[in-house]
Write a protein that binds this DNA or RNA. Sequence first.
DNA 1: TCGAAATGAGAGCACTGCTCTCGATCTGTT
DNA 2: AACAGATCGAGAGCAGTGCTCTCATTTCGA
Lengths: 230, 230
Amino acid sequence: MSIDAPGIRARNRAALEAEIKEVASRHLARDGAAGLSLRAMAREMKLSSSAIYRYVASRDELLTMLIVDAYDSLADAVEADVASVTGTGPRFRAIAHSMHAWALAHPHEYALLYGSPVPGYHAPAQQTNPPGTRVVHHLMEALSALATERSRPTPDARAHVAVASVMDEPEFAGVEIPPELVARGLASWNLLLGAISSEVFEQMGPDTVSDPGALFDLTVDLALGLVMGD
Amino acid sequence: MSIDAPGIRARNRAALEAEIKEVASRHLARDGAAGLSLRAMAREMKLSSSAIYRYVASRDELLTMLIVDAYDSLADAVEADVASVTGTGPRFRAIAHSMHAWALAHPHEYALLYGSPVPGYHAPAQQTNPPGTRVVHHLMEALSALATERSRPTPDARAHVAVASVMDEPEFAGVEIPPELVARGLASWNLLLGAISSEVFEQMGPDTVSDPGALFDLTVDLALGLVMGD
DNA sequence: TCGAAATGAGAGCACTGCTCTCGATCTGTT
DNA sequence: AACAGATCGAGAGCAGTGCTCTCATTTCGA
């Protein structure tokens, strides 16, 4: 054991677990999920590389923690921004812009949630599903309000076949939306995520779009039109 | 040198380079970009781990090759499917379904192109841009046909500011589309990629959507409505 | 024919996740 | 208070990675 570093053994388990989470979040924000290294974390915390395994079972477990935290961080941001907004359209816009802002502020966390899956890692649905569905849940609730205001759309057999099972998910219990609207809601969700990914991952190249923010505004208009208009 | 493996030195450089590309493509398809290992490739080819560096400068260079190949593979598939299709709407649908089918058949290659960027790797635009814009170029050409058939949409200052520079890219030389339609085209593109990513990366969970194919059909309808309708 | 270029092998460096052992410390019970 | 058992940290070690360097051999061109 090291002769200096006095406080090491004084720190208790809870404090160390909290520090591990903090260091992991910081490294994720700086290096991305692929660059996350348990050894590097241990080094920074002046722990041996083996000692960190007393607190974290594996790199995958750490990733799960970070995914859950990221989902919660995103959902917290969205909820804070949406709380005071009323009306389907305004709420939809608020959700979209909140997601957009969060993604730009946390690109590596966004990539962890909505980018290509980490190879070899399979997220345990039991832990990641509840926080992962919080945001889309808000979007679906907004659509639910829309559905009650309006007459039921003309039934579409294709839509029923395609998305019948979506609203059966336990996370959506109590939310009633006709399948036609569910399909449009999912499309608007995919449009928002596609637009955000395109911007965050710079898929169009660094300077192709002159004003990405303005383009996202237009995109939100179109996404809203997808669920509102016919 | 190894006493067995007779043909090793007989194979000339061109043949070895071709074999390296073939092995790399196969490993990419099986393990994904993150799992791509030069050492594993060398092992399979019965080469020492250092010898492979006579043919490949670095892992990043290999990735660039694979990205270019994947873009070309996708664009070839799209062009083959679209060649015989006429009319803006049908062409748009053909492009969308072709991309969808290619992505499902080549999930790891799709992730390499449209997933989160490989950490630490920066694609050399000079090599990846031309093949990377082939598909979206076809989509924009379809929109260009649409633009000439119709009267110019009411000018939107926001759209002009947002996407003025997009069509200035050298890859789009000669294609004339008003900015309002460019914005709608990009939105439809992002919607398609968002929907495909959601399906390929299983972002909704494994069994949430009962019939992903049917949902994608509906999504294509909506994406087409984005560019056609008002 | 002879020298230079090309090529492959092997060792080595720094890094990763993870396991095992061993000693030291801390803690709960008798 | 003393002892036993749980807890914890360190260090070595294994298998893997990208990449570099040296050295011997083969090949090829002048």
